[in-house]
Structure formats: C-alpha cells, structure tokens
Write a protein that binds this DNA or RNA. Structure first.
Lengths: 233, 233
DNA sequence: CAGTGTAAGCTTACGCCGTAAACTAACGCG
DNA sequence: CGCGTTAGTTTACGGCGTAAGCTTACACTG
C-alpha cells in the first residue's frame, strides 16, 4: 500500500516519539497524536510497539544509551583515559543529554526498566571502576553512587528552569518578604548561579569521594544514621 | 446534608489522596476514584482543590515536609547538634520517607513546585550549612548537592525493588549468560547489597565532600568537563 | 418565622486517552 | 493463480480530567 520508503518500523516510531516529546513535552505524547505525526492511525503503532508503556521504556533506554555511546569524533578508547576523566565524561554527557531532553528526567526517575542502554551504561561505569582498582563490592556501590548523582542532581538541573517559571513563592523570597520565616534561603537565593559549574563541583566531589573510598581514606563513619534511628524509631 | 464531622475539606482530600497512592500506587489515583473513596462525587473535590495537578503538588509538598519536621519524641533543637548529624538526619529521613511512599519518587523528580514543605526543607539544609561556616555561595551549592543526592540516590533506592521485579535481562545477567557483552556488571551484580548501608555511604561521602569544599581541601579540578567539551562540541 | 444569599455537593456532558477485536488490502511465494 | 502473512484501518469500550449549570441545606436578616 505504501512504498518501503515510508513504511513504519519500530525505530521510526521510536524516533518520532522522541521528536514529539522534544518538541511538545511528554504530556503531548499520545498514541493518537504520534500516529498523526507519522501519517498513520494510532492502532497501527501497535504492530511495532507493545503499548505505550513499552514505548516509554524504549525512549528512556535510548536516552541512557547516549550517555555512553561515543560520538564519531571520539578517538581515544575508554581505557586509554584516566578513570576519573572517564566517569566525569559520562556524568557530564548525561547532564547535557538531560538538558536537551528535559522530559526524560521524570521517566528516568520513574522507570527502572533494564534495557540495552542501561546495561551498557552500567557496564561502562563499573568497568571504569574496576580499572581503577575498586573491589567488586565497592564498584557496585560506586555504580549506584554515580547513577544516583546523575539521575538526581543532573535531573534537578534539568528541571530548574521550569521551577523558576512556576515559583510563586520564589518571587516573594527574592523580594525578602519571607526573610523572617526563611532567613537562610532568603540570603542564598540571590547567589549568582552557574549550573554547569555547580554540576562540575558535584561531579568532582563524587569522584574524589569514590577515590577516597577506594583508598580507605574516608573519615570514621558519622554514625548519624544510628543516632537518627534511635531518636526516631 | 451531612454533619460537619464528615464534611469534605482540603486536608481530608489530601490525606485521602496520600492514602490512596500508598495503598494502590499513583496510577490508581484518579479524581473519580478519590471521590468514591471519600463517599463523594468526583466533581465535589474541585471545591477544595484546584485540579489534579494542584493536588499532586500538594502531595509532593506534604512528603517533602516530612523530611524536616521533627517527630514529637525529638527533643534536641536543630542547632544543638553537629551540622553533619543534622544533614545526615535530613537525608536519612528523606530516604525512609520515600521508601514508605515510593510513588512520591517520580513526583519529586518531576514537580519542582515550590510549596511550604520545600521551602522549610531548603531552609533547614541551608541553615545547617550557614552554622557550619559555609559562605552563601557554597551554601547554595551545598543545598543543591544535598537535594540532588536525596532525590536521585534515595529515589533510586526506593524504586530498586520494582527494578528487580521487572528485570528480564537481569536474570540473564545473574546466570552469567551475558558475561561476554557485559563482563563487569556480570561480576558486581552478584554482590551482596545492603541498601541502607549503601545510602549511608553516599551520605557520608557527600557530607565529607561538603566539609572539604568548605575548607578548600578539594583537589585541583579535574578539568574533565573542559576536555569533554572540547572533544564533543 | 419567612425570605434569601451562599457555599457544598451533584448531574450532565465534552473531548481526550489507551487499546481490544475484527476487518481489509497488499505482498511474497508455491 | 491462490493463499497465507503482514501492515494498516475501523469501530468500539471504558476510563480519564474537568467546564457548566443545577440542587440542596444551612446561616442570617428582617
């Protein structure tokens, strides 16, 4: 009925979904609209995708995959660079990717589905830690620490612009009207703020912390959790 | 028509929404069902809540508020304890709260709305950092670092059980069937794993990093981002 | 006490959504 | 040619959020 050129395919559906989310946000991504965008009825999509949930999972995985796939201009092999640089690169790449696709933030946070992208991402981080001499146990922790940093901090970065747009109270804070109730943030909210620099700070903090962990250079445990548990159990 | 006892109110709606999400997950929370749960028609809820979005915002704020409100048994004033302990307490409390309400994870990640809860939460962290001698600039960074850690790492913890349940590939990994493609994680995936201990590790890492930041004890910047930007710009 | 304003809750309705099931039309291949 | 297979369509169902208008019951006033 149609030439092979414009035939649907799983990949074409996925790409269109990514494009639609990029252009109009996640809430605009409906099967019906996605079909329209592809010049096709909504139900046709189900030939190539199990359902919307599966599509969202695939979208997340496509994003995560970008965190670790090298661009064509990239020449050095991963093992050729210092593990610190390798981890920093992954974290910064994730950061930039999420800034480009802010809709992905909530999906990454909400959908733990394990796809090829996430596996390769986890493998890249763990391999870097192994090369740096981490024990399997610590490498495991390290993966979660790096992952948590990305999907938390870099996610927070990605949603920050929206935060300012919607903040009704934020304006009051800036005006100093809430200085009595919230004295500390009334001061800091006026701080100049370079998002990129702040994220770089966090990346360095985490990588440095990992190195100290590996070398047993962490100070004695604060036991704060134990205190907390006693106080609030 | 009804006695004041069972009259609706904004708070009753909010509490019912929290209970419904706790019991059956976020996807079960619809205005119609929430109404039914309260013995009322869906449209009645709109007398007390602007709409579903506003309700979700209120739910997030209620959760975040729990991260910094003291329980009745709590006696020490915040300033009476070490800033490290104070931060650790907030982070652990957030962790535990999110474990109790896993549906909140994606909401916290996706909804940057500033409500009273978030303001008091931000104030508590920033105040602790000020007491520890942080400059406003560094306190601002510190707030975002702590916040990012919570909403990323602790969120990741909260969704982990679901991850295992849905992981089709994870089983293959454990069986070693993917050892060629993913050698590193094939090793680490079998690591014993105490979530609480790992989170405590991260909390200590962050707090220690903040202290080093304050004291100017961070190693020279890795410049990894600069390299990355040159390589991939 | 009747009369009335007002707020709480209800009814109806509209346009979306995801998708199950059955249908049709084109192609590949014997 | 015939026929299974596959891609895409049609129709339909139940559910969603919520706009608009209606009913009811109470709180006051005169």
């Amino acid at each position: 009925m149609t030439t092979p050129r414009d035939a649907l395919s799983r990949d074409r559906v996925l790409q269109a979904a990514l494009a639609l989310a990029d252009a109009h946000g996640l809430e605009a991504l409906s099967m019906r609209r996605l079909g329209t965008e592809l010049g096709v009825e909504a139900m046709s999509l189900y030939r190539h995708v199990r359902g919307k949930e599966a599509l969202l999972d695939a979208m997340v995985d496509a994003i995560v995959l970008q965190w670790v796939t090298e661009t064509p201009t990239q020449t050095k092999s991963p093992s050729a660079v210092d593990w610190r640089a390798r981890l920093a690169e992954i974290m910064h790449r994730a950061h930039d990717t999420l800034l480009d696709h802010p809709w992905a933030v909530e999906l990454v946070a909400a959908r733990p589905q394990v796809g090829d992208g996430r596996l390769r991402y986890a493998e890249a981080i763990t391999a870097a830690l192994f090369e740096a001499g981490f024990t399997p146990q610590l490498a495991h922790h390290g993966l979660h620490i790096v992952d948590g940093t990305i999907t938390g901090f870099s996610a927070q970065e990605a949603r920050r612009p929206t935060a300012q747009a919607l903040g009704d109270r934020v304006q009051e804070l800036c005006d100093g009207r809430l200085a009595d109730e919230f004295p500390s943030i009334s001061v800091t909210i006026r701080e100049h703020h370079d998002h990129g620099e702040e994220y770089a700070l966090m990346v360095d903090l985490v990588i440095d912390g990992l190195a100290r962990l590996r070398d047993g250079r962490m100070p004695p445990r604060s036991a704060a959790r134990a205190n907390y548990m006693i106080a609030f159990a």
